[in-house]
Design a protein around this nucleic acid. Structure first.
Lengths: 152, 152
DNA sequence: TCGACTACTTGCAAAATAAAAGTAGTTAAT
DNA sequence: ATTAACTACTTTTATTTTGCAAGTAGTCGA
């Protein structure tokens, strides 16, 4: 009886998810206040190092940053490599799986720019999205994919 | 001196945001594990009452649900009206601002369906998105907008 | 008017998050 | 070679959020 209960518990722990809903799948990975900011920095701001993320406007705490970077690495969203020009530094880059998050981020930007009177969104970016969404996503995507292969 | 400090504090409380970045704007509103599930229920599952949300697969706690509903109402994402056919019930509906979140949710679904081997995503939905994204978003949007005007 | 249902609120424990301080391995300059 | 600064963390402690259980007040149908 104990064994059965343990087995049941382990199955729950292994899966550990609340449902197989795709919205829930995403929330369990980046449903918090910080993870998407790190991804934003890599995707749109050319940031790739620990101190880059640490010094972003929103001032993430160092323990939270370390935690989220390891979560993202384990989830296959980013990878980590030694900076060839600075041995004590690591470089964090988006994987293909991470780059594929771009359409989500783009739609978030469009929505927030529409409803936040104070938004810091670049008008040129919004123009490009409304004019040629696919083209914009592809061009940023291509640039980021180039970065992936640089240090591997 | 007290007055000055109080004034300073109030300004912080009024703005209260970490940055004007559009990604951050969205995260401050729905950057948690629950809020988007409530929006999903209203948007794709025809759920509109407190008990509908409470009994969803992910089993949200009643205090968290009450908190998120009032946050969403204050943010103008949903509105709340008395159920005409059942006086003790309220009906929660997405506003236009809430319906405009749909492109984000659609992209989340597409991404999760691609990377979650266990996803519960409907193949027909994915087919429609890849075939006529705008058409799909418009048809669900139109249906939801019809619901808005029903009880007002 | 009874029992069930509705949308909550309250209280408390547990978990997650944040801030601060500390650590260990480079690196750059003297 | 030594020191000061920088790097990516870890640890500790405090605060906030979440989860669970119970309670409440207003319907509703029989």
């Amino acid at each position: 009886m104990q064994v059965v209960e343990l087995h049941y518990f382990c199955e729950m722990a292994k899966q550990g998810r609340r449902s197989d809903c795709p919205i829930n799948f995403a929330l369990e990975l980046f449903g918090d206040k910080w993870t998407l900011l790190i991804i934003r920095d890599m995707m749109f701001k050319g940031k790739h190092s620990y101190s880059d993320f640490l010094h972003s406007e929103e001032k993430i705490a160092t323990n939270i940053l370390a935690d989220r970077l390891s979560l993202l690495e384990n989830a296959g969203i980013i990878n980590k490599s030694v900076d060839p020009s600075h041995g004590s530094k690591f470089i964090y880059k988006l994987t293909a799986k991470g780059i594929d998050l771009m359409p989500i981020l783009v739609e978030v930007i469009v929505w927030s720019a529409k409803y936040d009177a104070n938004t810091a969104t670049d008008r040129k970016f919004l123009y490009k999205v409304s004019n040629d969404r696919e083209g914009l996503i592809n061009s940023i995507s291509t640039k980021l994919k180039g970065e992936i292969s640089m240090y591997k």
